[in-house]
Computed example of a mutant assay.
Amino acid sequence: MTAAAALRRSVIKPPSLARPRKVEKVPFVELYAGRLQGVVSSGSDIERVYVSFFDGSSGNFNCSTNNNRPCGGLRSSPCKHLQALMGEAVLQFGAPRVIAYLGLGADPASAKGPGDLLRFIKGGPQREEAGMVFSRFLTYLHHVSLPSTTAPIPEMNWFVR
């Protein structure tokens, strides 16, 4: 397949990962609606998760529980949950794609790890409801728990066939 044909495909082959993703720590990470967003497990409470995001247009970020309680470690710089989210995003999508998607001023050739990218986050904390991201995570969990079938699944008919 030519490079031009590969760019027109709706499904792309994921990059081979340097290590397996830590899905127990960051079960959900996505580039969506101009943001890097996802769900990060709490380090202290197995029942708690944090909804975190970096906004590409403003450079702002947020981290709160799925019940909209603010993260205690979120100050004027990204907390450990946001750092974990960035780390898994770099692993999942690659630093060049994250840099391009968020519009960071980093050089893709020299920025390999999440710390290299976090230095280019120029915004600050921005309070926002966690519901949209958490709802997308729950929908994702529902879809991955569906049994394999060749029959049509009505809620997934928006996928390109």
Rank of each mutant, 00 (worst) to 15 (best):
6 A>G: 10
127 R>Y: 11
106 A>C: 13
143 H>S: 11
35 R>C: 12
102 L>T: 00
152 P>D: 15
70 P>M: 05
49 V>Y: 02
128 E>W: 03
131 G>R: 09
94 G>W: 02
161 R>P: 07
130 A>K: 06
43 G>W: 07
79 C>E: 04
153 I>P: 06
79 C>N: 02
98 V>N: 00
111 A>N: 03
91 L>A: 06
6 A>I: 13
54 F>E: 01
12 I>A: 12
144 V>M: 13
98 V>P: 00
161 R>F: 05
15 P>Q: 14
16 S>T: 14
47 E>R: 15
152 P>Q: 15
93 F>P: 00
156 M>V: 08
158 W>D: 13
17 L>P: 08
115 G>K: 05
26 V>T: 10
72 G>D: 09
80 K>D: 04
63 C>L: 04
16 S>C: 15
47 E>V: 11
8 R>W: 05
121 I>W: 06
100 A>S: 09
85 L>E: 03
119 R>T: 12
38 G>T: 05
142 H>F: 10
93 F>G: 02
85 L>Y: 04
123 G>C: 01
58 S>M: 08
43 G>R: 07
73 G>L: 10
10 S>N: 13
50 Y>T: 04
75 R>M: 11
144 V>T: 15
90 V>L: 00
15 P>L: 11
25 K>S: 14
30 E>K: 13
161 R>W: 07
70 P>Q: 09
5 A>C: 10
11 V>K: 08
114 P>M: 08
8 R>Y: 04
149 T>C: 09
32 Y>E: 07
62 N>A: 11
8 R>P: 01
50 Y>L: 09
117 L>D: 00
27 P>H: 11
33 A>S: 13
95 A>E: 02
128 E>L: 13
41 S>I: 03
117 L>R: 03
16 S>A: 15
19 R>A: 11
90 V>W: 00
21 R>D: 08
3 A>W: 08
29 V>W: 00
29 V>E: 02
114 P>W: 01
130 A>I: 05
25 K>L: 13
113 G>R: 14
161 R>G: 11
27 P>F: 06
75 R>P: 00
108 P>N: 03
64 S>L: 03
116 D>I: 00
18 A>F: 00
13 K>T: 14
78 P>C: 08
152 P>E: 15
10 S>Y: 08
23 V>Q: 12
26 V>M: 09
20 P>I: 05
156 M>F: 07
93 F>W: 02
135 S>M: 10
3 A>T: 13
122 K>W: 07
45 D>Y: 15
132 M>K: 10
86 M>F: 04
142 H>L: 14
89 A>Y: 00
55 D>I: 03
90 V>R: 02
44 S>Q: 12
56 G>M: 07
45 D>I: 09
144 V>G: 08
135 S>K: 15
146 L>S: 04
118 L>H: 01
105 G>E: 14
161 R>S: 10
132 M>C: 07
103 G>D: 04
66 N>D: 15
140 Y>P: 01
1 M>W: 12
24 E>T: 13
160 V>S: 14
56 G>A: 12
119 R>Q: 08
113 G>V: 06
44 S>W: 15
148 S>M: 12
27 P>D: 10
39 V>F: 07
30 E>S: 11
116 D>R: 00
105 G>C: 06
111 A>H: 00
161 R>L: 07
60 N>A: 09
87 G>L: 01
115 G>T: 04
